[in-house]
């Protein structure tokens, strides 16, 4: 004999279980669907998928996404150091001088930057950089990506630095280290794993971003360009254009590219897990 109270307990547990399952199912389906569809395409295209140019809309051949891969790599390489250096400086400032007015302002600025939609950044970079430079470029794309990744990297770095117990800072100063010495020789090395995680997640953010590139990078797909000042393509940009197109071949290419992007992201994600696991103080 169940009382109403017991029954309600069971019903509630069931409801929670069903809804949580429903929340997890989409992501599991997403990962499986993208990987299966994508790798079928890549398998069909073979090595060409990494070395060839994208196909014509009505072509039977799948071709490849070489311009997008190179473009994404190029823009990540340009924007990552900018992002990491600026974010690290800001994080050092706000953790070393937590009560200083400038620090409080920078912290609030980082929060505001994080809440600006990425497409707005794309528009602004278009107006301020693409127009004066008279053309799309990998550089403009990389700048837009840096602006987007900055608050993100800042949050990772400042959390990492803030989590170091105060006693190590005191130890550093007690053996007469200078401010920069303490930061470079003690604080950053102690937080190195969390900082590495921050860098990897920043890479994931940069290479996965679409909207920031819409009006900045250009969509150069008729060749492979390594020049920062000429137009470039990116994997997310290619996926966006192709999935919106009506052509079946382009949809297939989009699946392949999406699988590649997803795989890269998953690899980065698990790399961060491995880094964190090894933590030993």
């Amino acid at each position: 004999m169940y009382s109403w109270r017991m029954l309600r307990e069971k019903l509630f547990t069931c409801l929670i279980a069903v809804l949580s399952l429903l929340a997890i199912v989409p992501i599991v389906h997403l990962i499986i669907a993208v990987l299966i569809n994508g790798f079928t395409v890549i398998a069909k295209a073979g090595i060409n998928f990494f070395t060839n140019l994208p196909p014509a809309p009505l072509s039977r051949e799948i071709g490849g996404i070489a311009p997008s891969i190179i473009g994404t790599a190029l823009m990540t390489i340009i924007s990552l150091p900018i992002t990491v250096v600026l974010a690290l400086f800001a994080a050092i400032l706000t953790t070393e001088f937590p009560r200083n007015t400038v620090s409080i302002i920078i912290d609030a600025v980082a929060k505001s930057l994080a809440s600006i939609p990425t497409i707005a950044v794309s528009m602004i970079v278009f107006t301020l950089i693409v127009m004066p430079m008279k053309g799309f470029s990998a550089l403009a794309g990389a700048i837009a990506l840096s602006i987007i990744a900055l608050p993100y990297a800042y949050t990772y770095f400042s959390t990492a630095l803030r989590s170091i117990p105060a006693m190590y800072r005191e130890a550093a100063f007690s053996i007469a280290m200078g401010r920069w010495g303490a930061v470079m020789k003690v604080l950053i090395p102690i937080a190195r794993r969390s900082i590495a995680v921050g860098v990897l997640m920043t890479i994931a953010r940069i290479m996965g971003e679409t909207a920031a590139l819409l009006f900045t990078a250009g969509r150069f797909r008729t060749g492979v360009s390594f020049s920062p000042t000429s137009p470039a393509d990116a994997i997310p940009l290619l996926i966006f254009d192709y999935i919106l197109s009506p052509y079946e071949t382009w949809h297939q290419v989009a699946w392949g590219a999406a699988a590649l992007l997803l795989l890269a992201y998953i690899v980065l994600f698990f790399a961060t897990k491995l880094i964190v696991k090894e933590v030993k103080l």
């Binding site: 117990p165 006693m167 190590y168 005191e170 130890a171 550093a172 007690s174 102690i190 030993k280 103080l281």
Partner: peptide, 8 residues
């Protein structure tokens, strides 16, 4: 210091 704090 009160709590041993060698650099980890």
């Amino acid at each position: 210091f009160q709590v041993p704090n060698p650099f980890p």
